[in-house]
Design a protein around this nucleic acid. Structure first.
Lengths: 348, 348
DNA sequence: CTGTTAGCGCGTTCAG
DNA sequence: CTGAACGCGCTAACAG
């Protein structure tokens, strides 16, 4: 393996000089710099970053732990993270937490051992934030979700407002029997989405019937089950708001098996947009989160904390950036049908 | 930052002893080992992996460069990689190449600087393999696709056989006018899929009309365009085989806009399965690649090369593992309609 | 402006 | 079985 010494020898200078030109320090005569450059080229020399990291005490690596890599929302975030990180000379070690707090802990632990400069985290429960492992171990930026009573740096979408808008869209269409498939309620995203939905209903003086509030787990299976239950009700809803992409998938699967046409018999509005949403029937009405931008912002936040870290501690912390989501109206939402589709008789 | 010295001091032993217990070397009295363990616990000590890496000359990190993180096929592979890597004490640095050979080169370069122990690569063109950057720099395992005239270690799915099966399914349904939307033909996956399709047609003594062979770029837009063109033909196909997931999405979008019912008017069979495929209408008939297993296998292959690397060079190289894919028959394929749907008249 | 030297935190000799 | 010394490849302080 080539080292800085090989370059120095070939260029006939000291290793300090080589180091200086590599790091763009001034104070090297143009001729020598030239010689060094050529030597590096000739040898196809790549400086050993691990040695460098040991010395400068930063690895230019950030860790990212994701609850679920197969969720397209998170992969969009990842793209934003990777792009922005690379543009700033950082690499990213990604870890899958599989929505498992214990695994999350272990991942955080190895990230620390690898001395990443900072970590991007979408926590799987509310504990991570308080953990001695995370706090003070390294700069941490939360994304997508934050624990209750959170203080720190984070970037999230405005889940409350987005969900209100979603519900208002349904209400505006004339729906009165609106159900919601909520996600896990221990983290901010699930909670705020339900809350926003509730608020909009309240503002419209519409009740949220108990049997219309279902709780999934953000997974496909949960959405499927809730969909089955909801449509099996004596008085099924005419519209359903589904709090994330995977559950929406499950819901649609349930509707398909039940042969319940959407939007004719029931409207569906799903949180999270994805390519697929516009390719199949029905084309899904969704709330689109700015996922890529979220990743980009998370890195910016982290890097700025890293930059000022040397300054007085407790400086620019406790920043929560909130991103706006957008309603994408497509074909899965429509006014409720007035004529009953089930029987031949009338109903009010 | 805590070091091994702090542990040694607290346990009142030498650093060598601490090192020995950490690495499970024998020759330490149980009592001392106990003391050391307790000290490590008490301090919540995490060994500095970067220092360790510098010394032992391996980072226990593998690099993975992916052509497109947003493609669910690759994220499934990633899950397999991450899981298997972690189980063997490896972390993974993932890089997005964005289907861009130049970016791929840069990513490979920084991976080398970071001295990853090996790299998993789905190359974006045929050059990477020959590159002086990749060859001999570090152990390399290709996945998903290999360059033409490849030699080395790789894991791919049996694209040829899978595509033959796909085409045979369509033929078995009675289709005669079968079109194909092929992908990029410079890499093995695109090529083999087309080849398998061709073979099956030949075996059935069916011609592949020139206008029925379209070439996409594995992206959604390409599938969309090809779909438009194909269905705009004077004599449109009654079935389409689409060579990857994203193009299938585009194709379905085109069909939707054209209001061409699937499978009534045209059957669609897409390469790559995904959760979505079973949730919307029509439920897609697909070829399901064992993506997770591919990731897992890639890591196994890499790790075994790493393990025997100290042995005679050129040992267990040039292994190409081929994984079987499975046909998932759902609703998007059906026998061709015999009655014309377009006009009211007859046609043969 | 350039070269020499001392560590960064750890693993691994070697004496004891 | 344990402890002190050396070096991995690099940067930073200092000396020339």
């Amino acid at each position: 393996m080539l080292t800085i010494k090989d370059v120095a020898r070939l260029a006939d200078v000291s290793i300090a000089t080589v180091s200086a030109v590599m790091n763009g320090k001034g104070g090297v005569s143009p001729e020598l710099a030239q010689r060094v450059q050529q030597a590096m080229e000739a040898l196809d020399y790549h400086p050993n970053q691990v040695a460098r990291s040991l010395k400068v005490r930063q690895t230019h690596t950030i860790g990212m732990v994701i609850p679920d890599v197969t969720n397209p929302f998170f992969t969009d975030v990842m793209r934003g993270v990777e792009d922005e990180a690379r543009r700033n000379g950082y690499s990213v070690i990604f870890c899958n937490a599989n929505e498992d707090p214990e695994l999350e802990r272990r991942q955080l632990s190895t990230l620390f051992s690898r001395r990443v400069d900072g970590v991007l985290l979408a926590p799987t429960d509310s504990l991570a934030a308080q953990d001695r492992l995370t706090r003070r171990r390294f700069p941490l930026v939360f994304f997508d979700r934050i624990p209750t009573d959170f203080s720190g740096t984070a970037v999230v979408t405005d889940n409350l407002e987005a969900s209100r808008e979603a519900a208002r869209h349904l209400i505006g269409l004339g729906h009165q029997r609106i159900a919601v498939i909520a996600g896990r309620l221990n983290l901010s995203n699930g909670l705020k989405r339900l809350e926003g939905f509730r608020q909009a209903l309240q503002e419209a003086h519409l009740p949220l019937r108990e049997e219309y509030l279902r709780r999934g787990d953000f997974q496909l299976e949960g959405g499927y089950q809730c969909g089955l239950e909801l449509m099996g009700l004596p008085d099924p809803p005419s519209a359903i708001f589904c709090c994330n992409n995977k559950m929406t998938l499950g819901l649609m699967r349930a509707l398909g098996e039940l042969r319940i046409p959407c939007p004719e018999r029931v409207s569906v509005l799903g949180f999270d947009d994805f390519d697929w949403a516009a390719s199949f029937s029905p084309r899904l009405t969704t709330i689109a989160q700015p996922a890529y931008e979220m990743g980009k912002t998370a890195v910016e936040l982290l890097l700025s904390r890293l930059g000022t870290r040397k300054g007085s501690p407790g400086g620019s912390e406790d920043t929560i950036v909130t991103l706006k989501a957008a309603l994408c109206v497509r074909d899965s939402t429509a006014p409720p049908c007035t004529a009953p589709l089930t029987g031949g008789g009338f109903s009010p």
